[in-house]
Simulated assay, not measured.
Amino acid sequence: MAIELSFAKVLKSVRIKRKMSQEELAFRSDLDRTYISMLERGIHQPTIASLFALSKALNMKPSDMIRLVEIEIGEVDDRE
């Protein structure tokens, strides 16, 4: 699966798990709701600044979000 689609799936999954709307996530991360929508559809990829803003709004570390994407695309190294 392409990285942008994996990120999209992870972002939407975490947002829904946190019982947050796209609008609320946009407000908390100071990003536009349409940008959140495009991220969740795999149309755009986040910048590092956006990744940090989204992670903070979702109460998680950016590295944890990246780890979830790694798991989604199957690129997890079992040696860690």
Score class of each variant (00 low, 15 high):
residue 4 E to Y: 07
residue 4 E to H: 07
residue 4 E to T: 08
residue 6 S to H: 00
residue 6 S to V: 12
residue 6 S to Y: 10
residue 7 F to D: 07
residue 7 F to M: 07
residue 10 V to G: 01
residue 13 S to P: 05
residue 14 V to A: 01
residue 14 V to F: 01
residue 15 R to M: 01
residue 15 R to I: 00
residue 19 K to S: 13
residue 21 S to W: 09
residue 23 E to S: 11
residue 25 L to Y: 09
residue 25 L to K: 06
residue 31 L to W: 06
residue 31 L to F: 04
residue 32 D to Q: 01
residue 33 R to I: 05
residue 34 T to Q: 12
residue 34 T to E: 14
residue 36 I to P: 06
residue 37 S to A: 14
residue 37 S to R: 05
residue 41 R to I: 08
residue 41 R to Q: 10
residue 44 H to P: 03
residue 44 H to C: 02
residue 45 Q to C: 03
residue 45 Q to K: 01
residue 48 I to Y: 10
residue 51 L to M: 03
residue 52 F to N: 11
residue 55 S to Y: 05
residue 58 L to T: 00
residue 59 N to W: 05
residue 59 N to K: 12
residue 60 M to T: 10
residue 63 S to V: 15
residue 64 D to T: 15
residue 64 D to E: 15
residue 65 M to Y: 12
residue 65 M to H: 09
residue 66 I to D: 15
residue 67 R to V: 13
residue 70 E to F: 15
residue 71 I to K: 14
residue 73 I to L: 12
residue 74 G to R: 03
residue 74 G to N: 11
residue 74 G to D: 12
residue 74 G to S: 00
residue 75 E to Y: 10
residue 75 E to F: 03
residue 76 V to M: 13
residue 76 V to C: 06
residue 76 V to W: 08
residue 78 D to S: 14
residue 78 D to W: 09
residue 78 D to L: 15
residue 79 R to H: 08
residue 80 E to P: 11
residue 80 E to Q: 13
residue 80 E to I: 13
residue 80 E to Y: 02
